[in-house]
Design a protein around this nucleic acid. Structure first.
Lengths: 226, 226
DNA sequence: TCAAAAGTGTTAAGTTTACACCCATGA
DNA sequence: TCATGGGTGTAAACTTAACACTTTTGA
């Protein structure tokens, strides 16, 4: 930077906090880690960290996520900046919240211990500190909204999935039960869901057809509605 | 603050930029000011400023708006944080974009000259600097979305308005024409729009009935759909 | 008297919802 | 053979979209 015209203006620590969603055994889950700095050392928090000089906010969020999950390809989106003056008793920090979706099959479990991370079901959360509960609620609402008009929920599933898995995922996120026939009709009416000849026998004796989502075709038209 | 645990982490200038919408003569407008600092001194930018020590982001946005428009009651909502490393050639600044809606009838025109401010029609904008065009586009999309399921557009109108004015406002924001009978049916079917006995003769010889929006009733149920 | 905006209903098309039984299989 | 999840169609209710003429009045 040749010069800085704003040297007299105040400066702040800036952090990112990432609400990371996963899905397993019919439950929507969120990834937490035990904090390793004061204050609240040892308590559970969403994955976060301070933004470094050479990083955008998105870079920082992506770095935090990949270094602690091993996943390089995931959905990551900004939620909102949180700036209450005393939101962090450890010092003034402006934190930008993100949410991310990842397929737990890709998740590197060995990093979990190394970074003291832990998946928790969304319906059974502990006390959260700072404004982390606000961030989490905002993330859930955004996710509930967004899965109805974009296919981001598929990021929480393996590449091939059954319609039953997909319906249980939507039910877990929306926190309501859906009609099986109407659900399948809507899905199959969209040209992006491709039935493969693979059969998943893990969930039932009969076995269920596995589908994939055709992102190329989706990107041409982007007509999605659930 | 008793102590600061994060003293070794990097710090940044943090700013707010406000995309302020107004509506007049059937046109959606945005408020700009001539920048009074380097770089780009004199060029048009959205209203913005640096976040001060005793302020949240929302406080800063609200301060910038009220000091330069004279309006104290307006709709203000966070859009997104922008953090590209070289987004501002004057120094590294992380900027949080907001958008706001105001009724131009309440706007203090004398402040306009004092702060070098200027309303421009959305369909006739000049070159914008930094990432201000991105912010503006984001604001427009958010506004287009949000007026279909909340009554925020009414913040752009005087307290009493005609259905014609309201339709022209929706058309200006959505950038498409709407069917008059369907529009009026939807509006009048909602119990929040109250027909007054005032007649606005300014827009036609015949005169049009003026309506108000009942926010109390809306806050009880919040069922709004356009 | 006419130009200009206000005001007003109906019908067809499309979408959403509700609902119940048979199928295939492994244990 | 039976328990379990997979798979399938239709009709009613509701919502959305398309469409044209009469009214009022000031200039």
């Amino acid at each position: 930077m040749a010069q800085n015209y704003y040297a007299h203006e105040p400066k702040y620590n800036v952090a990112v906090d990432c609400i990371i969603f996963g899905f397993e055994e019919g439950k929507l889950q969120v990834l937490f880690q035990h904090r390793n700095i004061e204050p609240f050392n040892g308590e559970l928090t969403p994955l976060g960290g301070f933004v470094q000089q050479d990083e955008t906010l998105e870079d920082a969020a992506y770095r935090v996520l990949t270094e602690r999950t091993g996943i390089e390809k995931l959905f990551l989106e900004q939620l909102e900046a949180f700036s209450e003056i005393n939101r962090d008793p450890g010092g003034r920090v402006i934190s930008v919240a993100f949410y991310a979706l990842l397929n737990k099959a890709d998740y590197d479990k060995s990093l979990m211990d190394q970074f003291n991370c832990k998946w928790l079901n969304i319906d059974n959360l502990p006390t959260l500190y700072f404004d982390h509960m606000k961030m989490l609620k905002k993330a859930v609402v955004r996710l509930q909204d967004k899965i109805t008009y974009t296919p981001i929920a598929m990021k929480l599933l393996p590449e091939a999935f059954t319609l039953g898995q997909m319906q249980r995922l939507y039910e877990a996120i929306l926190n309501e039960s859906l009609d099986k026939r109407n659900f399948r009709k809507k899905v199959c009416d969209m040209p992006y869901f491709i039935k493969t000849d693979k059969i998943d026998k893990s969930g039932s004796r009969r076995g269920a057809a596995m589908y994939t989502f055709d992102y190329d075709k989706y990107n041409e038209q982007k007509l999605f509605h659930m």
